[in-house]
Design a protein around this nucleic acid. Structure first.
Lengths: 144, 144
DNA sequence: TACCTTTGTATCGCAAACGATATAAATAAA
DNA sequence: TTTATTTATATCGTTTGCGATACAAAGGTA
């Protein structure tokens, strides 16, 4: 038996499981807004900074553009964003929020708190969370 | 601007990004074995305990059976596992390793070390990793 | 100008991942 | 025993996610 191959010894599996369960935890709240979890991430990026090229959105989310493009196409069909060719650089596609997309920010502002309330852990306190964030941030920087 | 909606303040996004980047880190090594990352997880479960019903595999991986079934069908097509109806309970499908699947464990034993070597972080030490594991484990227990 | 390379998006194909639903076997209830 | 319910898998449709590839715009270079 190879101890290093035990599921319980894997960081990768914990991240994989935690990530999917976290996505599921957001599901019911995002369903009320009519969006999915990756779409929610795109919206957060745009609420923070509107009118960005596809490339910048993808980089921010650590995704490939061939993942983001169809995602944005679906969001455009739903009337959340519009996509326009860049004026200076005709290769770029600038993604901007519609009025509907901007309005959604108000409703969405409650979501993080609602999810957090279902996620009370003894090990996730104002003391320990910054440490966890820093560790994950370093891991992400190292892997990308 | 809603501070709680900033991407940088989200645990969910860090887990999402870290999980995908981790999967990508395994990619090249698993490609040599001819399997994908979720398939690798299934193999780890079976190396630990062979001949399990689909349901147990799914529970162990925190996945739905409708995700695991097609995964196993692809693995069966590749000759890594075989699926047989249970004798006592005809509803169950028992998944077992083939000789090829068992042999793969030897080659795979190097994978965790190879990935770890590309993942050296100042915040991921023998001291801090148990703490991180415990936090993620509690989070997973809370969310499931 | 003509040609080559780089850059930014998009298209295609495949493997997850999951909700909704279907199906058959096992179990409980009548 | 017949009927109803639960349980274990499987099927279907949609959304992600990514590698490989295509393609057009932009930027060199000769």
């Amino acid at each position: 038996m190879h101890e290093e191959l035990r599921l319980e010894n894997q960081l990768c599996f914990r991240l994989y499981a935690a990530s999917r369960l976290m996505t599921q935890a957001y599901g019911p709240f995002l369903a009320k807004l009519g969006i999915t979890y990756p779409q929610y991430l795109v919206m957060m990026v745009l609420w923070e900074q509107d009118a960005q090229p596809v490339n910048d959105l993808a980089k921010r989310l650590h995704l490939e553009t061939n993942t983001v493009t169809p995602l944005l196409q679906r969001m455009e069909k739903q009337g959340l964003v519009i996509r326009k060719r860049g004026k200076e650089d005709g290769r770029q596609v600038i993604v901007s929020l519609t009025a509907k997309g901007r309005q959604m920010e108000e409703t969405a502002a409650d979501v993080p708190r609602e999810v957090a309330s279902r996620m009370v852990c003894s090990r996730l306190t104002p003391d320990t969370v910054p440490e966890l964030f820093a560790t994950l941030d370093e891991l992400i920087r190292t892997l990308e």
